[in-house]
């Protein structure tokens, strides 16, 4: 994979590709939605910072629907799900490519802790999840790494010679998530 692009481009125009559920909490897996609709502190920060907002697809909703139950990267890490993610990555990369060509600064804001949309952190089956479905949310173990969807999107961009955007994530799938702290962290990321 090519090195992540710093992203600052000459045009002064900026676009943020955001995890689907940051704009639509209805897409979250059962019991993981933290707000009714939009994660407005995050989206409002991006808008007020001058970013065009592009919403990434939610591969989990499109694959397993709204009644899906909790899962982990280990479970989603299979050829069928990766093929599904890659098909979404193709039309998503078409849009990223257009902004890249038009010299926008492109950033990607994922959903840290998610088995699919994690950028810095994803979720593992070790030691509880992935066994019998009797785990508690507090037992969900977050580890450094990207989710399956973000990995497949990175591969698609790499094959096109497009640098992976400078990226961060909002850790809404982390059991100790704190919205205020996360928005402050995002503001720092955007100003770097």
């Amino acid at each position: 994979m090519k090195r992540a692009g710093r992203g600052t481009r000459k045009s002064g125009r900026k676009v943020a590709f955001v995890a689907h559920c940051l704009v639509n909490q209805n897409a979250k897996v059962a019991e993981f939605a933290r707000l009714p609709g939009i994660v407005s502190p995050v989206i409002d920060l991006l808008r007020s910072s001058g970013y065009v907002i592009e919403q990434l697809p939610c591969p989990e909703l499109l694959f397993n629907g709204v009644t899906r139950w909790w899962t982990t990267k280990d479970i989603y890490d299979n050829p069928g799900y990766r093929k599904h993610c890659r098909s979404l990555a193709k039309f998503t990369a078409d849009v990223i490519e257009r902004y890249h060509r038009d010299r926008y600064e492109v950033v990607l804001i994922g959903l840290d802790g998610s088995p699919s949309s994690g950028v810095r952190f994803t979720g593992t089956s070790d030691p509880i999840w992935g066994g019998r479905p009797d785990a508690r949310i507090e037992e969900y173990k977050i580890v450094p790494g990207r989710g399956v969807w973000i990995e497949e999107l990175a591969k698609e961009l790499d094959e096109r010679g497009i640098p992976f955007p400078r990226a961060s994530g909002v850790p809404m799938d982390s059991p100790d998530f704190d919205l205020g702290r996360s928005v402050a962290e995002l503001a720092t990321f955007l100003s770097d």
Partner: peptide, 14 residues
């Protein structure tokens, strides 16, 4: 929640 349609300049192939 919002499902945003892509921008008008979206490539036809996408």
């Amino acid at each position: 929640g919002i499902i945003k349609m892509p921008p008008l300049a979206t490539p036809k192939v996408a």
